[in-house]
């Protein structure tokens, strides 16, 4: 253990210097389930997503749907259920907000 520790002293640290060095981040993989984006024009108002959303984050709204993203649990089920692919998963993951309503705009 002592050797291991002393060796590590002279190795490069494993740390990704997020926030302390500009543009350094752990890479986000392609399939990452981040914030959802909704294409209102593509939506046909079948309301299937409301039936399958486990968190009750989707509500009906004038024959289409609207999202309350503070409830979203990022499972991606809505985009899988949607027959027209009107809901897409983006790779955005840094959702840090001061009030709940800002989540949608971030």
């Amino acid at each position: 253990m002592i050797w291991e520790a002393l060796k590590s002293l002279f190795k490069k640290p494993l740390t990704v210097q997020y926030l302390t060095k500009p543009d350094e981040k752990v890479p986000v993989p392609e399939r990452y389930r981040g914030k959802i984006s909704y294409n209102r024009d593509a939506c046909i108002g079948c309301l299937l997503c409301i039936r399958t959303c486990p968190a009750g984050a989707i509500t009906a709204d004038e024959r289409k749907v609207s999202f309350s993203l503070d409830r979203c649990i990022f499972c991606g089920q809505c985009s899988e259920t949607c027959p027209r692919k009107a809901i897409e998963i983006t790779s955005k993951f840094e959702i840090v907000v001061y009030t709940k309503s800002e989540i949608a705009s971030q």
Binding site: R31, F74, Q77
Partner: peptide, 12 residues
């Protein structure tokens, strides 16, 4: 996990 399923903890 993140690469295969899209999340580190809840794989879905």
């Amino acid at each position: 996990f993140e690469e295969i399923t899209g999340n580190r903890i809840h794989h879905a």
